[in-house]
Design a protein around this nucleic acid. Structure first.
Lengths: 338, 338
DNA sequence: CAATTAATTGACACCGGTGCCATTCAAGGT
DNA sequence: ACCTTGAATGGCACCGGTGTCAATTAATTG
């Protein structure tokens, strides 16, 4: 250790009077090392405060210690939950989390992703919805040999490369719950087109209705885009109908709250006049009044699992769960119809 | 290029029939290169699809291409805005953004931060509030030679290392606005203790009151913690007073909305019965009804500037703006008192 | 006790770039 | 034509680790 700068493996080797390769073995917890030597080297490492240089290891191992979360502008709460989950998943490892958003609407979207992967060469990437169902991007990962795990609402890859939740089942359950309460005219506020998650949620809704022998009145199905405003608009349409619904299922909480506020603004009482169910279980859903009955989406757990799969070998990843349960959270926004 | 794997600088050198050092010069846009050679090498680079290996550059240059955002669990919208700003700031560069939260309440908080910096050795870190005013962490950065920029609400460092906003001025302005409308009994919902931003906001409030010759009734000052619930609690206290305020300034939007909902739930009309002003200009503030008059906090711009300062040399960074204006956004939650 | 085998450890090239200094080459001066 | 000078390029060590394989040492066996 020549006076200043961080100590390197050479400094440790010199101080412990062993070869750098031996120090390397200690760092990597190699089993073929005598306990005596290991102890000696570990003492020196601790003494010198040596921390292995990740850049050098990255170069030598031809892989770095970066997990990248690639997304396309989802909402803030979702994004932060995913980040939290990934960080939990890599906690204790040497990995760091890099985040990189992309705009799927730009012409050179795919080029941008490619450039990012070529430049940073992350060890693995977590593909967030809706990018996770973009096969072109997944192909890109495969082509470049970048490990990836998709967070998706359907099983569109093998067990090692996907983490999903059973949204369809959960929505079916939630809708059945409304039906069980006595609702027969149930409005549906859909999510944006071209995404898989709203498709699944809608499918679950339809399945429950069909199973209960209820017809799906097209007038009760309104488009939405997962935004507060779209929830407002959809709700305005629904309550303006000649035979308005007695309950609304919105494909996410933000729209559900938009609907809730809209209904109240037009003089309705919630849940007495109209029941509302959302999806996501965002923090806001327990803040509003009445608190929103919704479906909890295990997004943090999903992200944690995705990250763990990335840093485990493929065969171990395939053994880990690939589907995590979404489930109904009963709060105060649902009662039987009048 | 031996058949497979990504092409390296050696492959380019061989194909262009120059030394690898010359290729290196091309990559680094060195001026002492003949145009002919440069053109030739660039053609080969493009042809081979060569992308320099950042890990190798990092090792050789003894610096990597990572900007880290270090934070302590702020709210999701804030965090995402900061990330967006930083990403805008590093757009076009080779840098990537790594995020790492820490819990300041744990015993080994400082150790954790140190371990992270020693392990990943980011080129620079953006310190988000409230960590940005933790001198121990800043000292850590200095000691380790890690570049840093603080995002803070006060100027607690030199121009090259800080980006702030004039929150105090903005709150003074906002409060003066309420006073100008005719309010004299104005409630204040404070932010969490130990943070600088709520201190500044409170200071601005007091300055405006004092300047208008209004006394600061302690009963009208309620604690808060930037959460929705704390806004609810504080508002309940305020409206239960014998002489309740005719207006409330909440130190952030979330509490303001908590207060808004609480007032309405107890039968008051907003803004007729009570005016409310928040701070942050979160998306929600324009969604609620009536839309919330608030102070826009230029957080994205601040983060962008912070990132730009990090990747510029110190002297250039010192020339960049270090204070960005916060300003009042008049919406619908303020009218003169009855 | 020598021979064989297993357990440790070391030497050295290499990962893919950059820094420093030497070398080559073309242009300008006399 | 010869020397000087500056521009352009190359050679080689080095950044801080790891992989491969050889060398050394310790343990086991006949």
């Amino acid at each position: 250790m020549k006076g200043e700068g961080k100590p390197t493996i050479n400094d440790v080797a010199a101080a412990a009077n062993v070869s750098k390769k031996t120090v390397s073995r200690v760092i990597n917890k190699s089993p073929l090392l005598s306990d005596k030597t290991r102890a000696k080297v570990e003492a020196v490492i601790k003494d010198l405060g040596f921390v292995p240089n990740l850049q050098a290891r990255a170069l030598a191992l031809r892989r770095n210690f970066i997990i990248a979360a690639i997304h396309d502008n989802p909402n803030a709460q979702f994004l932060v939950n995913v980040q939290q989950g990934i960080l939990e998943g890599i906690e204790g490892s040497e990995f760091g989390l890099m985040v990189q958003p992309f705009d799927r609407n730009t012409e050179d979207f795919e080029q941008k992703v490619r450039a990012f992967l070529e430049r940073q060469r992350p060890y693995g990437v977590v593909l967030l919805p809706p990018i996770s169902s973009d096969e072109a991007i997944v192909d890109l990962c495969r082509e470049m040999g970048t490990r990836y795990v998709r967070m998706s609402s359907i099983k569109n890859d093998d067990e090692a490369h996907i983490v999903s939740s059973n949204d369809r089942d959960a929505v079916r359950e939630a809708t059945a719950y409304l039906i069980e309460k006595g609702h027969t005219r149930i409005g549906l506020i859909e999510g944006p087109e071209g995404f898989t998650s709203p498709q699944e949620r809608r499918a679950g809704f339809e399945e429950a209705m069909t199973a209960a022998g209820l017809s799906l009145d097209p007038a009760l199905v309104r488009p939405g885009s997962y935004t507060f405003e779209s929830g407002v608009t959809a709700a305005q349409d629904l309550i303006a109908l000649d035979h308005p619904p007695t309950a609304i299922f919105a494909c996410n909480d933000e729209m559900a709250i938009g609907a809730m506020i809209t209904c109240r603004r037009s003089g309705m009482l919630i849940p007495e006049d109209i029941s509302i169910v959302g999806f996501d279980d965002t923090p806001l859903s327990s803040h509003v009044w009445p608190s929103l009955t919704t479906v909890r989406w295990p997004i943090v757990e999903m992200a944690r699992t995705a990250a763990q799969k990335l840093i485990e070998p493929d065969d171990a990843a395939a053994q880990m769960p690939w589907m995590l349960p979404s489930n109904l959270v009963e709060r105060g926004s649902v009662v039987p119809p009048k």
